[in-house]
Structures are given as structure tokens and as C-alpha cells.
Amino acid sequence: MAKIVGGAAGPHSPVVYKLPWPESPEYVSNMERLRQCYVEVGRRMRELGADTLLVFGADHVQTFWFGSFPQMMLFTGEEADYAVGGNKLMRLKANPELAEELLFGLVDEGFDVGFSQEIEFFDHPFTVPVYWILKGVGDADVRVVPFHVNTNVHPRVKPKRCYELGRAVRGVLERSKRADRVFVIGTGGLSHYPGTPYYGTIDEEADRYILEMMKQGKFSELSDVGYDWLDATGNHELGSWLAAAGAVDARSVEVMIYWPAWNNGYSVVWFVR
């Protein structure tokens, strides 16, 4: 059977790719620590022999437009371009055979996921974590499968549904006769308020509550939160993390970093089984 060999979650801000404004030495050094956590995730992923990276993330009205905005969309094409702010950085192979099986399996399970076989590009919610993780993976041949789950434009996929989606992904892969070794990540978070007048504030208390719940393995309870609380605390992207946690069947997390920066509560976690 295909196997989910592990998973992690962390931020996808374009700032994590490259700092676009001058910052204090402390900020720069913390950002480097954060990036190195992703590199470490990549190293561990390689040690686990992963050949496919399944990425749960939410488009930020860059890949899709309000002409057609999907709630869930799985990429089933051969390969895709990855950009930051529309500037293409890399083109990566996907895993269409596995993605197709996942698509059919999820629809059978009652998750009416859309698909795309060709996309102009995925942007920072997918690009940024993958960029740093692949540095840790090195020259191993890894295929990347993006899975858009809308947590960023209302009305959105509820956190509970995200968690259940992850669990369904696990079920489908466990029943598969394929030999893929899949590593799963959820991208986004923690507290931040991009594009709003609240930008420049974070909610450290909420971030620490989320991390504590995850440490205690209370993923299902955590997924009972609603978008009123998530929006108020800047944690609207938690659904991607919960989807990854569900897919991994996580029992806890190792908090690799939590850094309450002025603009974002940045955290990378490793899902522990």
C-alpha cells in the first residue's frame, strides 16, 4: 500500500522566502532559524525515504480568481510552476497517478474535490515551504502534489472538515496498491492578518493555545473552532495544518520553532505519531 511516512506544518509568507525590507539583526537571525527548521524537515523527509510531497495550502487569489474559486482542488497534472508574487521560481514534477487515485478515492468517500491537470502557477502558499524543504531533501527525486483547500476567502472549508479530509486522504492511501511513500505538509499560520488594518499585530496567546492543544494530541477538539475565532486571532489558515495532521494521524507535535515576530506568529511543527 501507499504509505504516509510523516508530516509537518509551517508558514508560507513570502517574507520566509526572502526578506523584502530591512530588519533588525534579531529578526534576520530568527528568520534564518525558521528557514533551517524547514531544511531540517526536508532532511528528515529524505531519511524517511519519501518520494512524494503532498502540500495542503490555500490559494490567495493568485492561482484562482473569483471567476471560479474552488473550495478544494487537487492537482492531477504532470508538473507545475511555482512562483512568489507571480514571479516563477521553479517547475516541479507532480505525481498524477497517485493524485488521480486520491481524487477518485476522496470522491467515493464523499469529499467532492475538484481537480486541475494544468495550472499557470502555484504561488507562495505552496512555493515557500516547498522551496526550503527541498533544500533539505537535496538531490532525492521528490514529486510535489499541491492540494488547495480554501481557508482564506469566505465561505471557507470548516476546520473540522479539513481534519476529516486529511483522515480520508490517509484512508484512501492505505487502501491503495501503489508503493508511494508520501510526506504531508500543511502551510500557513500562525497568527497574522495580511491585507487588513490588523496587520502588524499577532495573537501569541491564541498561537500558544493551538500549539498546546496539538502537543496534547487534541486535534479533533481543536478542529471544533469556527472562523469567528480563527479570524479574530489571525489563525484563519489552521485548516491546512489540521488536514496534514489528519493525514499523518498525528498524536502530538514537536514544536521545532515558535517565534512571535511583530507581523506573524511563526511556527514550524513536526507531527508525531
Binding site: 473569483f66 476567502v153 469566505h154 471557507r156 490588523y198 472562523y227 479570524d231 479574530a232 484563519h236
Partner: peptide, 8 residues
């Protein structure tokens, strides 16, 4: 708090 990441 009203929905922040609202329907367009």
C-alpha cells in the same frame, strides 16, 4: 469580530 477574510 466580523469575518475578516470575507466573501468578495
Amino acid at each position: 469580530v466580523p469575518v475578516v477574510f470575507r466573501y468578495p
